[in-house]
Design a protein around this nucleic acid. Structure first.
Length: 217
DNA sequence: TGAATGATCACG
DNA sequence: GTGATCATTCAT
């Protein structure tokens, strides 16, 4: 990991840093927007690294009928009420893991769903895990990216400061971001709490990507 | 458009 | 225990 960070820093002549819990201990909508452009890196048990730049997210906040925290603290949602800066992973549709980052101070529920990545490292391993070869289909959706990166329920509640999961700021900041309605939910369907980089080819659901532009904070 | 496929939660 | 629901994906 240290090597990877040093190499990435040198290659891009950029100052890289791992996002601290204080980054996540803020308003969920702010964190969601600021996560765009950051790098998610996973180090597997056998030391294999895969990484991608975050290009699409959704916010799920304390006051949010669509959030798993809406019914209060349950065994599944309790992590959303806990310490910020850890992963919330859940299993859905009998097939897919979804990766979220926990936000807000302890006691306040909040999470950001990571919906799409632009691959930046370990594409061959991602292709092997996804059993496909098309780069564009590798991580352009929440279920896809979890599988490509080897995310499982074992990652639930794990720190985002390592040694398995890392979120990295390499100084690059998107110029324009778009907000739209969230995908696949049945409540609070009018809220534009999905944020993505317009025109990025790795954003999911390309046909429905109309929204409000330049909504940065 | 709908099948796949199983965890979660409310209800009793 | 039971049944409805589900922050999705892929093949028809």
């Amino acid at each position: 990991m240290e090597n990877w960070l040093a190499n990435w820093s040198k290659k891009n002549s950029a100052k890289v840093k791992i996002l601290k819990p204080s980054f996540y201990k803020r308003d969920t909508l702010v964190v969601a927007k600021e996560l765009l452009g950051k790098i998610l890196l996973i180090c597997s048990k056998n030391g294999k690294i895969t990484a991608g730049r975050i290009v699409e997210v959704e916010a799920y906040s304390e006051v949010d009928p669509a959030s798993h925290s809406a019914k209060g603290e349950t065994p599944r949602s309790s992590v959303m009420f806990g310490e910020p800066g850890v992963a919330y992973v859940y299993f859905i549709y009998g097939m897919y893991e979804m990766l979220n980052f926990v936000t807000e101070k302890k006691g306040i529920a909040g999470a950001v769903l990571i919906r799409a990545l632009e691959p930046v490292y370990g594409e061959d391993l991602m292709k092997k895990r996804r059993k496909i070869t098309n780069l564009k289909d590798l991580t352009s959706g929440p279920g896809k990216l979890a599988r490509a990166l080897g995310i499982t329920m074992a990652h639930n509640k794990k720190s985002l400061q390592g040694p398995e999961l890392y979120v990295i700021d390499d100084g690059s900041s998107p110029e324009v971001i778009t907000a739209s309605k969230r995908v696949g939910i049945s409540r609070a369907t009018d809220l534009e709490w999905r944020f993505f980089l317009p025109d990025n080819p790795f954003v999911s659901r390309a046909k429905e990507n109309r929204g409000s532009q330049n909504v940065r904070n």
